[in-house]
């Protein structure tokens, strides 16, 4: 903030009269007019310092915010996505392990059936063993199909991963110029067409049951 021309002129005049007074052997104290002027200048100076401090403060605050957002978009969100993918991978591994065991046990069930065949038709053990093998086969089917939870939960988690990616991209865009300095680049946008589908049913959602679907399809001639 610069002093006005008027203030400048008044200051020069006051200084001149002070020098003249000093040269003529007068008081060394600043004349009252000058003292008053200097005080005004001080106020302006302090106001200026205050304004600069305020700007610096808000600058620092927004910089920290940028840093935080940068950290979230650049590290925390990719980390969240990574963890979610890991969950999908773990459930996939677990489901496959279960299916491996189901396959092995199906072999055992077939072996029991074959062993049963070696008994005479009249032997009660034959019927009992065949029944047990059949129950085993049915239960193993149920066990196998129960593993579809992995697909359904996986689909829901993948949707959340897409959402995180979207928020991440939006944040990076918001950060604008700073985004160039981030460690992780924004991921590719999710493929079109996926977002419009409702996906696996979640509680509280109106969906169609297999029976409703059958009725609907029948009405459409399928």
């Amino acid at each position: 903030m610069s002093a006005s021309t008027q203030d400048r002129g008044a200051l020069i005049m006051a200084l001149r009269s002070w020098i003249e007074r000093l040269e003529s052997g007068g008081s060394v104290d600043a004349p009252p007019a000058l003292a008053e002027l200097l005080q005004t200048q001080d106020h302006a100076f302090y106001r200026q310092v205050a304004e600069l401090t305020r700007r610096l403060h808000s600058g620092v605050v927004s910089l920290r915010l940028d840093e935080r957002l940068t950290r979230i978009a650049g590290d925390a969100m990719p980390d969240a996505r990574h963890r979610l993918r890991h969950v999908v991978q773990m459930t996939e591994d677990a489901a496959h392990k279960t299916l491996d065991i189901v396959d092995q046990m199906r072999g055992v069930a077939r072996q029991i059936s074959r062993s049963a065949e070696s008994f005479e038709a009249s032997d009660l053990r034959r019927a009992a063993l065949l029944r047990d093998a059949e129950i085993l086969r049915e239960r193993l089917n149920e066990l196998a199909i129960a593993q579809e939870y992995q697909d359904l939960t996986g689909q829901i988690i993948k949707r959340i991963i897409s959402l995180v990616e979207d928020v991440e991209s939006a944040l990076l865009e918001l950060l604008g110029a700073h985004a160039a300095h981030l460690k992780t680049a924004a991921p590719l946008p999710i493929a079109e067409g996926q977002a419009v589908l409702a996906g696996p049913a979640v509680p509280g959602q109106i969906t169609t049951s297999q029976q409703d679907a059958d009725a609907l399809l029948a009405s459409l001639g399928v």
Binding site: N141, E142, I145, E148, Y149, D151, L152, Q155, L197, A198, G199, P200, A201, T207, T208, S209, Q210, A213, L216, L217, L220, G221, V222
Partner: peptide
């Protein structure tokens, strides 16, 4: 897993022969 009416109709119109909603079972 798509269990919305619109999707089932869309599939029927596209010429699907059958539509099973996940989760499903062996009998279905």
């Amino acid at each position: 897993a798509e269990a919305q009416r619109e999707q089932i109709i869309e599939a029927a119109q596209a010429g699907v022969n059958g539509y099973i909603i996940k989760p499903f079972n062996a009998a279905t």
